[in-house]
Design a protein around this nucleic acid. Structure first.
Lengths: 343, 343
DNA sequence: TCTGAAAATTTACGCGCGTAAAAAATATGT
DNA sequence: ACATATTTTTTACGCGCGTAAATTTTCAGA
């Protein structure tokens, strides 16, 4: 490693004995130059620690190697986990992921789109806020930047959507609960932030009808992203009001269920499927913490790896197709049931 | 809003009737131009949606408006929450935060430093991995880029450190546990990833001596960032081995404690401070989830807001001081006790 | 109204790299 | 060894903006 500092590609080309345009070609795609020249460049790279100026590169290239990743709320471990998977895949493919969280706020989501636009990313993977999203702003964004939606669908926006098959989630849990005990009632936020919640409610109602049971939907109050607290307070309220008509509660998602378990504990209610238990609680998502609740949560699990993997694959295809698909693609992954102690 | 598309600052300067250098000055600092010209530029901004090319700006400015934020593991809600606070403050101050997670891997931490270096950030806020960090690489980085460490200190590195006063955390919990029941033993990972863990163990031992008690440290096996699972398995092992000499367990951090609670539940042990309880469990950090464990965790809480706030403030000071402080600053925030049902 | 200071304009150059076109060098197959 | 295809070199320009210096305009205060 030589001490001499390389200031720019010109100087680096000089010390490596290759012309600058060829060096430029190498950095754009190492396989685009002859083996022998590639070896000479890489030998020089070992001696001098030069790396091209990111800003100069991106200013001149039409397509940057940046990929935007937008999630609605990064402090939710579910999104943190998905984002972690996606990031890793992007890096492995030689892209530079830029992770942005909307922190549950429409204004922040708009800001994120704005700053992504000015970064000229090759593509964007976006999980929108849902109900709180400015649909028309997202639509405009998708027209300018090749975008794949994930987790939360907005009809017709982006070139593709990769998500979970909510009906599969709910059918798995409802069927399991039906065959192992009393029919479940369904607990959700009255005004869900996310379209998945609506699909789950509908799937629950249909599943119950299929089983010849009367569906019971318990909607609890609350806004924002503090789902656990909303679930906790809502459960206290629902129990006090006698809203639960059976001993089995199916929650729309795990974070609500965590709040339900908390409330049950506070009321001295035992949750589980034993004879000595007062309630069964099941849910959906397989949130990273649901293994560690007391009791551990029975839940329908996302295929994290596949959702992340397919999202990234789809985005890469989209980029290679020049940013447009002929028809919008929708990929839904089914859940798998994770039976634990809570139901 | 006119339809005409503005291609660059030259064109925008033309339509706004101001010279390009002045427009450039405006975008660098709107207050650096006269009120009347500022008004004219902003009037033009309303009509045409022009924004300067980020890459061209950053290529030419010595100091970008980018701020790096590096955390060791973003899927840990503790870091997600801190990062969320920091991001918001950076944005409010007109900077562009770039959030990077090391995903628990040294290689990723090094990659993050590398890519940050090439982004020429005005400054970096970094919570290092700790034991897994490549100290000398971080040291070199800190020489090149104004860096403030937070959460996890590495002696002498960076221009400042903002963190928590681990002794305060442990004293609060130990004193509380001492006055409310049996003396606590201390549960931690045998090979902690983080220097805070070492400081907490030492503080525990000293606090116990101060109370005239024999300290009992239970070290459990495990590597990586799956602390809950490590805590769960470790607790099963420790109970089987009879390592807990009292009914009170003080955990090094909340994520371990969550695993402890899980294991206790699995073994049918009741946790809490009632007469009918088998164990008391307390911990440190006030992890976002610790309110919702069963029972809710008694813990020593970080001052999230102040840690995030002071970190950002310190970084801003550092930037304004040209990237160097005369002497390295260390700021430690004390904890406050959050008594819940677990102890 | 005049004067000095402050702000804006004009002019010009440079940042580090992408990239196009033409010429030269090198590799491949026979 | 030769002809052809491939790769590299040479040369040159442009991207969009920062910024410096000299000049002109504008402004505030007496």
């Amino acid at each position: 490693m030589s001490d001499r500092k390389i200031r720019n590609m010109e100087e680096f080309a000089a010390v490596s004995g290759i012309s600058r345009p060829t060096v430029s070609k190498y950095f754009n795609d190492p396989d685009s130059v002859r083996q022998t020249t590639r070896a000479r460049i890489e030998a020089a790279l070992e001696q001098y620690d030069y790396r091209p100026n990111v800003y100069a590169i991106n200013q001149n290239r039409r397509l940057t190697k940046n990929l935007g990743i937008v999630v609605p709320y990064l402090a939710d471990p579910f999104f943190a986990e998905i984002a972690r998977n996606i990031e890793t895949l992007c890096i492995a493919a030689g892209f530079r992921p830029i992770l942005l969280s909307s922190h549950g706020e429409q204004s922040q989501e708009l800001d994120n789109l704005d700053s992504l636009r000015s970064l000229k990313p090759a593509g964007v993977l976006m999980a929108p806020l849902g109900r709180a999203s400015d649909k028309s702003a997202i639509e405009r964004f998708c027209e300018d930047v090749p975008t794949v939606l994930f987790d939360s669908n907005i009809e017709g926006m982006g070139e593709a959507f990769i998500g979970s098959d909510n009906a599969s989630f709910v059918n798995l849990t409802v069927d399991y609960l039906m065959r192992s005990g009393e029919p479940p009632c369904f607990l959700e936020m009255r005004t869900p932030a996310n379209p998945n919640a609506n699909k789950r409610r509908i799937a629950y109602i249909e599943a119950m009808k299929r089983h010849g049971q009367e569906p019971v939907v318990v909607g609890i109050e609350g806004d924002g992203w503090a789902f656990e607290e909303i679930g906790r307070q809502g459960t206290h309220a629902a129990i006090a009001a006698g809203d639960f008509t059976t001993n089995t509660i199916l929650c729309s998602n795990d974070r609500l269920a965590i709040g339900v378990l908390s409330a049950c504990y506070e009321r001295g209610l035992k949750v589980g499927r034993g004879a000595d238990c007062d309630l069964r609680v099941a849910s959906h998502d397989d949130h990273p913490f649901s293994r560690f609740t007391c009791p551990a949560l029975t839940t329908a699990a996302h295929d994290y790896t596949n959702v992340a993997g397919r999202s990234v694959e789809t985005l890469f295809e989209l980029i290679e197709s020049g940013g447009r698909f002929k028809t919008r693609r929708e990929t839904l992954f089914p859940a798998h049931l994770v039976v634990r102690a809570s139901a």
